[in-house]
Design a protein around this nucleic acid. Structure first.
Lengths: 154, 154
DNA sequence: TATTGTTATACTCTATAACTATA
DNA sequence: TATAGTTATAGAGTATAACAATA
């Protein structure tokens, strides 16, 4: 292992893939914490739960297992999230017709409304920050978002 | 509130700031979870602890309060992180000479070594993913990282 | 009195292991 | 026997509230 060319310690700027990975990792961690902190207080659903609603709204009804895979959590974690959503009346659980071990999670009208109403609210803080950027900077992030998504889903 | 122009539900592609904010937020959340999951098993320091070491290495010794502000955590959380780092011999605590309420956290030689040695290891997974991108995609992320960082620190 | 950091405590989210039911 | 999901339990990381030491 050689760190002879790693100048990040002294300059604060990194170069190369290792530096980019380091910068990106820290940025993602900090931004995520900030996003969690900025969650609107009168939204009683966790960010994970809202992501599930968003996924159901975007891609349609899914089994619990598929949801767990998509959100990169273990099945028990998804069970908890779906419990919470079901209690709130945002989704329904139905045994699959083809395989009764599977549970199909479906968005209710209330859930759909929540997705739409909360989307603006949840992204309010970030959208505000984005609106303060230049067009060029926004364009960079618009290009970057799907790449980040792809990396996360790999 | 109007969502008449919001096509994301049916197309999977969003446009405008609200859509970008939504996409970016989800990407950041998923990527962060993935990064946490990919943490190297023989690294006993949490990602938060490593971020603190990285900050000290990059910007020099800091008080506990400054570290807490920089990492966007509350002081008790930073106390815990610093406890862990001190027990591991990665940092030292010293009362500030000018204000003895303050605690100056300083990187030890071992801590510095840990930063350097772990940086490559911690970013290994992400660097691997980055290496699979095209030059253009990497360039986008290189441009995006500081913007994300800036947003997170605002 | 106000501020810096610590201690005590609790909450959120997640995971693993053991279990139930279906296949 | 294998798979989908649930229940029970534990761990990591964070927060708020109350406190001690210093300014």
């Amino acid at each position: 292992m050689s760190y002879a060319n790693d100048m990040s310690a002294s300059t604060g700027a990194t170069s190369g893939d290792a530096g980019l990975a380091s910068d990106l990792r820290l940025s993602v961690m900090r931004l995520r914490r900030r996003l969690v902190a900025e969650r609107h207080p009168d939204n009683d659903l966790s960010i994970g739960a809202m992501a599930v609603l968003g996924g159901l709204n975007r891609y349609g009804d899914m089994t619990l297992g598929t949801l767990a895979q998509r959100e990169r959590v273990q099945p028990p974690s998804m069970t908890r999230i779906v419990n919470c959503l079901e209690e709130g009346g945002h989704v329904t659980r139905q045994p699959s017709e083809t395989d009764r071990r599977q549970v199909v999670v479906a968005l209710t009208d209330k859930g759909r409304k929540t997705v739409l109403a909360d989307r603006a609210r949840r992204t309010e803080w970030l959208a505000q920050r984005l609106s303060e950027l230049t067009d060029a900077e926004r364009a960079i992030l618009r290009d970057a978002a799907p790449i980040l998504e792809r990396i996360a889903n790999e």
